[in-house]
Amino acid sequence: MTMIRTAGIRSAMLPVPVPVAVLAVLAAGCGTERAGNSAGADRPSRAGAATPSTPVDFPCPGESATSAPPTAAATTSPAVPPTDHYAENHGFMVPFPLHGRHRCEGLSAVARVEKALEPLRRRGDFAPENTRGALTGLGYSAGQVRSYQNGPTGVGFLIDTYPLCVEGTMNRDSTRAEAFGGHPDHSGCDRPSGGH
C-alpha cells in the first residue's frame, strides 16, 4: 500500500489573516486603468455628473428677453484677487443673487413692494411704522417685516421670507427695492455681523 504524504498540503490550507487577504484582493483589482488610458473608452463619460450646473436665467413674466441679466457664467470677475483681502474678508456680507424661477418671484415681490410704498413716498410719509404697515398689508407677517429710519427723510426696510429676501429704501427721490437669496453661511435675510 502506498501512502500519500499530505503534510505540505495541510500547511498551505492554513487560514490566511484577513488583512493580508483584503490587501491581496485590492492589489489585484486596483490601478489597472490610468488617466489617458483607452481602457473604458467605450463607456460613457461621468464628467456631467461631477460638474455643477450653471444657473440659467430666463425672461420672467412682463420682462423682455433682452432685459434678463446675464447668467453667473457670463459675469466677469477680476483676474487678480485684491491684495488687501477686503473682498475675501467681507464676502460673507455679499448677498446671493436669485436665478431662474426664484429670480422671477423676486422681481414680482420687488414690483409689489415698490407699488405699495409709492403712495407713502409721494406724501412724504417716511415713518417706519407706516412703511411696515404698508408691507404687512401685502400679506407679509409682522415678524417678517423690519423698517427703520434711514436719515432725516428716509426709511429702510427688510422683508425676511428666507430664502427670498427683499430689502430697500424709500426717500423723497425714489423707492428702491432689491430681491436676493440670503447671505453665505447664514440662514436669514439680515446682513450677518461677523466673518472670519
Score class of each variant (00 low, 15 high):
146 R>M: 06
159 I>Y: 04
50 A>G: 12
108 S>N: 06
88 E>K: 09
178 E>D: 10
14 L>C: 00
38 S>W: 07
124 G>K: 13
140 Y>S: 10
23 L>P: 01
175 T>F: 04
51 T>C: 08
64 S>P: 02
11 S>V: 06
158 L>F: 02
49 A>E: 15
99 H>R: 02
117 L>Y: 09
163 P>D: 03
37 N>L: 04
94 V>G: 00
87 A>F: 12
116 A>G: 06
133 G>M: 12
2 T>R: 09
98 L>R: 01
154 G>S: 09
142 A>T: 15
156 G>P: 10
182 G>I: 07
68 A>E: 03
91 G>W: 01
44 P>Q: 13
141 S>G: 15
104 C>Q: 00
45 S>H: 06
49 A>Q: 14
162 Y>L: 01
46 R>S: 14
147 S>W: 11
150 N>T: 05
19 P>G: 06
175 T>E: 11
35 A>G: 09
25 V>H: 10
195 G>Q: 07
60 C>L: 06
15 P>H: 02
109 A>T: 01
98 L>D: 00
53 S>W: 04
98 L>T: 01
161 T>Y: 03
9 I>N: 03
20 V>I: 14
144 Q>K: 06
102 H>K: 02
70 P>A: 12
18 V>S: 04
72 A>V: 07
161 T>A: 09
150 N>A: 15
85 H>C: 02
189 C>Y: 08
183 H>S: 02
43 R>F: 13
23 L>S: 13
193 S>G: 15
160 D>Q: 05
99 H>G: 00
167 E>A: 12
172 R>C: 00
110 V>R: 05
113 V>L: 11
176 R>D: 14
174 S>L: 07
119 P>F: 10
41 A>W: 04
78 P>Y: 05
94 V>D: 07
147 S>E: 09
120 L>I: 12
112 R>A: 14
118 E>K: 11
25 V>F: 11
82 P>N: 10
169 T>W: 03
86 Y>I: 03
2 T>M: 04
179 A>G: 04
80 V>I: 11
141 S>A: 15
117 L>A: 12
23 L>D: 13
77 S>E: 08
119 P>R: 07
15 P>G: 03
